[in-house]
């Protein structure tokens, strides 16, 4: 594709901290290359702001190659922009043309309070993991891997679920701000493996309870999460989480948890 440059209007959400009221601020950026990534375009804007003596836009990013899940931006109504199974850092400016206006918002959910501008606090996810997303490993020598046979399909499904990068796009995209896709991916990848067996019955319940406590909404099977997940986590994982939950309900300990 031919390389080209463009001038853009950006409407970016600015917010001082979680307590303050935010508002949109409009910026113009010039000579943006079609080869740039979306975050590089924001870098250009920030350099411009710094050289003008203004406060740069705060946004999260780390790996810039689609694996860390930090680059949360809600771009023109879409989590991580319009490309399928793509994080913001992998979105490239060839998506846009000269004269376009782009509206950039933070993830909006009460469980993800805004830290500043586009950066949100996703530690709620960490607390959900801490509530049950772990396995018990006894100390001592590592067990021979061949002692634990895992069926190929199970291993593949567990691996597919484990590709969740905890980016929170599912919450951002869900009309209910529910974290079910994330939780289902984390429950699934352990439920499918023998290593996850000991905590199986209480894991799902503890993680769901924590999800509720954190103030995420509840899942009504709308499916916007699956459509926006950069890692292609499937709704099948939510069905599995529901099965795990019902299993725990019917045969889990009545007194524990």
């Amino acid at each position: 594709m031919q390389h080209y440059t463009m001038n853009l209007t950006l409407k970016v959400w600015r917010q001082k901290n979680s307590k303050s009221q935010g508002a949109f601020e409009t910026f113009q950026v010039k000579d943006i290359s079609s080869e740039m990534s979306f975050l590089e375009m924001i870098d250009v804007l920030n350099e411009q702001l710094v050289s003008e003596g203004k406060e740069p836009i705060a946004f999260d990013h780390d790996c810039r190659e689609g694996i860390c899940g930090m680059c949360s931006m809600y771009i023109n109504g879409r989590a991580h922009g319009p490309w399928h199974e793509t994080t913001t850092c992998q979105l490239h400016m060839r998506e846009y043309k000269n004269g376009d206006t782009i509206v950039i918002e933070p993830w909006r959910a009460s469980a993800f309070p805004v830290i500043k501008d586009l950066a949100v606090d996703r530690t709620a996810f960490d607390r959900i993991i801490a509530a049950g997303g772990y396995i018990s490993v006894n100390t001592g020598n590592a067990v021979d891997a061949n002692c634990l046979p895992v069926e190929k399909q199970q291993a593949d499904d567990a691996f597919a679920a484990a590709t969740c990068i905890g980016c929170g796009a599912c919450v951002a995209a869900c009309p209910n701000a529910s974290a079910m896709l994330f939780v289902s991916a984390k429950v699934s990848h352990l439920a499918l493996l023998p290593q996850g067996e000991p905590e199986r019955k209480k894991r799902v319940v503890n993680m769901i309870s924590q999800m509720d406590t954190e103030g995420f909404g509840s899942c009504t099977n709308i499916g916007a999460c699956e459509a926006e997940c950069p890692k292609g986590i499937s709704l099948e994982n939510i069905a599995r989480l529901n099965r795990e939950y019902i299993g725990s309900m019917l045969s889990g300990s009545a007194t524990g948890v």
Binding site: S178, V205, I208, S209, M211, D212, F216, G217, S218, C219, T220, L241, N242, Y245, I246, M249
Partner: peptide, 8 residues
């Protein structure tokens, strides 16, 4: 009474 319970 959890969110999944209500869903059920």
């Amino acid at each position: 009474s959890t969110s999944v319970g209500k869903k059920i």
